[in-house]
């Protein structure tokens, strides 16, 4: 019994220590932002690996999620003779939930894990130490650009996801299932509020971008510098990011859509 309690306590202490360490790291990362502004090249390079390389999976997923939403929504809505609301349903679910959340989950799997692996490998091969001994702060030089790029890329990717989702839904709803084209757009415009739906979705994805890249760079920087350690850190990044996104989504939804 006491052993169980002790183990529980040890787990808590470890969790709190990790949280504290990651907070300190975050502060150091944010301190470097002003320096980054003087070297926009670094940011562009990271936007490439975090953003551009993630576009394909985001675009394809967005398109298919929109198409499936439209298909499923049509079967249910047509039972109530409310097919005209199909566009609203597709757009609302994409903008409010699926766009930010699915993008963040895919981002964690594609970009987050790659970030962790890259930073972890740089640590394992002493590149981070090497930078430090060259009087270059690895946190500012390596982590800050990656963090800022992830923070910027997430809402952009989410916007792409939602836009392509709406188009995919339109293709299925209007093109294949015969919902009227005018009704689709007019109903959507009448019922989707830019502030309530669109802005809140963007805020969500900003929060997710912050948290996902934070987790990714922390796991990479904090990984055990061996190949086993880096692969464990990569797995942890995906698991922690996904859980954080889903948990935060619930909290944010509760706060936003009263």
């Amino acid at each position: 019994m006491t052993e169980v309690l002790a183990r529980l306590g040890a787990g808590w202490i470890l969790a709190v220590r990790h949280l504290g360490r990651s907070l300190l790291l975050l502060l150091r990362i944010l301190e470097g932002v002003d320096e980054l502004l003087l070297r926009p090249r670094l940011l562009v390079e990271q936007l490439f690996s975090v953003g551009v390389l993630t576009v394909l999976i985001i675009a394809v997923s967005g398109l298919f999620v929109g198409m499936v939403l439209s298909l499923q929504g049509y079967y249910i809505l047509s039972q109530f003779a409310a097919e005209s609301a199909l566009g609203v349903m597709v757009a609302a679910s994409l903008l409010r939930e699926l766009g930010p959340v699915v993008t963040a989950l895919l981002f964690a799997g594609r970009a987050g894990s790659a970030l962790t692996a890259e930073i972890g490998l740089m640590k394992a091969t002493e590149q981070l130490s090497g930078l430090e001994m060259m009087a270059v702060d690895p946190v500012r030089r390596v982590l800050t650009p990656r963090f800022v790029a992830g923070f910027i890329a997430m809402p952009l990717l989410a916007a792409l996801f939602s836009a392509l989702g709406v188009l995919g839904g339109w293709f299925v709803g209007v093109g294949l299932l015969g919902v009227d084209d005018g009704t689709w757009w007019v109903q959507m415009q009448a019922r989707i509020d830019w502030n309530e739906d669109l802005s809140n979705g963007v805020i969500k994805s900003l929060v997710f971008g912050f948290v996902c890249t934070w987790i990714a760079v922390f796991q990479g920087y904090n990984s055990v510098p061996t190949s086993a350690g880096v692969s464990r850190a990569t797995t942890r990044t995906v698991v922690h990011s996904s859980l954080a996104v889903l948990g935060l989504d619930f909290v944010l939804t509760a706060l936003m859509f009263k």
């Binding site: 740089m122 091969t125 590149q127 130490s129 090497g130």
Partner: peptide, 12 residues
């Protein structure tokens, strides 16, 4: 100070 790491620690 210069430091030569065992692995070289070159930026890949």
């Amino acid at each position: 100070m210069g430091m030569l790491f065992q692995s070289g620690a070159l930026l890949t």
